[in-house]
Design a protein around this nucleic acid. Structure first.
Lengths: 325, 325
DNA sequence: TGAAGTACTGTAACCGGTTACATTCGATTG
DNA sequence: CAATCGAATGTAACCGGTTACAGTACTTCA
């Protein structure tokens, strides 16, 4: 396994120069750099990250922390972050960690020391807990806001509010909101927005849940939904809504109007269904970008970015096919 | 940030003894170990993995490599592996990497050097490519077999074969198999098993695909399925099958019999539906266990483990509620 | 009682990079 | 032409652990 000393020897330079060729190319002559790179290439040199981290304090690794992976919403976020990280020369690793109880902190602490920064999806733990867990490590929160920590969120709450308002305007009077996982920050935001949209109207909104963001949970939820006989259902997650509809359909009943996401609506050809689409890909990409910026300037003020969420009302509710909130 | 030297000083021992307290506790007096641990506790000492890796050649990190995360089948595998790794004092990180083209090798190479071993989910790349990519790093394949590399697979193919056989025995003559992602090893196995079960009978099995293992792909697949008017559908993945049924139902048609998984069947109360359940959790757990064993004994012969997959035929097809293959 | 173990613990080298500081050398300038 | 300066490179210390080897003290057994 070639080390930088091997590369330096072959290139006829010192270890220091060889190292600088990779870490600060601008201080090395173009000619020298070329020789070093050629030598590295020939020897199949790959830097030893452990050594680099130990000596230089940076590893070139970013970690993305998710509470669980059984939620398909995370996939595009992770993909987006990964691409951006790659492009900037960082490696991204995904760590499943709930960030909820103090007993898990040592493991998390160890993780923190190995990486240059964290993209954190922590829907549930308390603000205090998360702030403490992150410590001084550069971090960017996704889909959650906490004072003093940079964050990117998909502004789904606005879309949910607007959707509920449109449903009411469209004549719906009994609307069910199917809540996400217990304690979820986004769920809190969405519930509030949905409720706010209904206040002052004669429409009634029922909040069900908490539910996992899964198809099976949707099936389970259908019993509770049926009791209220809503004419429209707004689920926290697509899979949840699909489960509800499936349960209705497979019982031979006509399901109420259930909002979904465009890809599904399009595949089904049911253009009269409203769809809410957060761009997970962009969410991940932005988070990675912000994190890399922050690593470079840890003392800059913590930015809060809110990305638009597309609400497509479908034909029934509006003549405008799609509106950007 | 406390180092082991700090701990050693506070405990009144040498760095070496302090280090041994953590790496090989059996060679240290219980009394000494207690003092060292107390000191570590008081100082909030957390080992620096970079230093540990550099000096000792082991990092205490296992990586689990998946091609993508938009497949819910991976979630329990990852969870299972994580729990086992944790229990053995390893940290598990998830890396999304397709392991398909040579251009991605450098990034993978860097990864390999940071970890003690790899749990690899690589459904698609060629045997040669994967073998080369893994190099000398201890690795365990999940749901795929390659000569010379240890592996754990869920023996789904057998279950698929048995299911098709039962369907035929139950009177089905037109059966559709919905294939998984292009080039998937498991898909090859399952297709072969399904076909084999039909040969020599007067039943006809149609193979559709490839499809992603998603609900949306199932909706898209329904058009193709409908053409063949099968009486039973065996999808590569649960989500795929649900998508097909959903499309039928939402078009107001009665879907054919579609095999699913127990959790869904139970939630729906449709006990006449056959279900195939691979225990992803156990798959992950076993893989992590085998990997840790292999790290300890890299030259042991490569084991091939096949885990049973539960085939529950449902009421219609069999009087036995569940059979273990 | 002394030799040979045995069980711990300590000393110091080493892992493979990074970087502060020293050095060299050609270009610039008074 | 000597003094000054800056760019490029080299020297060597250091990051924080692990571990081979040496040393010490306490048993054990002839």
């Amino acid at each position: 396994m070639a080390t930088i000393a091997d590369v330096a020897r072959l290139a006829g330079v010192s270890k220091a120069t060889a190292s600088r060729t990779f870490t600060r190319p601008e201080v090395v002559t173009a000619e020298t750099a070329k020789r070093v790179r050629a030598a590295a290439e020939k020897l199949g040199f790959v830097v030893n990250n452990a050594a680099r981290l130990l000596a230089g304090g940076r590893s070139g690794i970013l970690a993305l922390v998710v509470p669980t992976l059984d939620n398909s919403f995370f996939a595009p976020i992770i993909a987006g972050a990964q691409i951006r990280a790659d492009a900037e020369g960082y490696q991204l690793t995904v760590v499943v960690h709930p960030l909820e109880s103090a007993s898990e902190i040592p493991a998390f602490e160890r993780l923190r020391r190995q990486v240059d920064g964290l993209v954190v999806l922590a829907p549930r733990g308390s603000d205090e807990f998360i702030r403490a867990a992150l410590g001084e490590t550069p971090a960017v929160l996704v889909d959650r806001e906490i004072d003093g920590i940079p964050s990117v969120i998909a502004d789904s709450a606005s879309a949910f509010g607007a959707l509920v308002a449109s449903l009411i305007a469209g004549g719906h009077r009994r609307i069910a909101y199917l809540g996400g996982p217990a304690g979820s920050w986004q769920d809190g935001q969405r519930t509030a927005a949905a409720r706010a949209a209904a206040t002052g109207t004669d429409a009634h909104i029922t909040v069900h849940g908490p539910y996992d963001s899964t198809f099976a949970a949707g099936i389970d939820a259908s019993a509770s939904v049926r009791d209220g006989a809503p004419t429209a259902v707004v689920p926290y997650a697509t899979a949840l809504g699909l489960g509800v509809q499936f349960a209705y359909l497979s019982a031979g009943e006509q399901p109420p109007l259930v909002s979904s996401e465009r890809a599904i609506v399009r595949a089904l050809g049911k253009e009269d269904t409203p769809a809410i689409d957060a761009d997970g890909h962009e969410l991940g990409r932005t988070a990675a970008e912000m994190l890399i910026d922050r690593i470079g300037a840890p003392d800059a003020p913590a930015a809060r970015v809110r990305l638009d969420v597309v609400l497509d009302l479908g034909r029934t509710l509006s003549s405008t096919p799609s509106s950007r909130i």
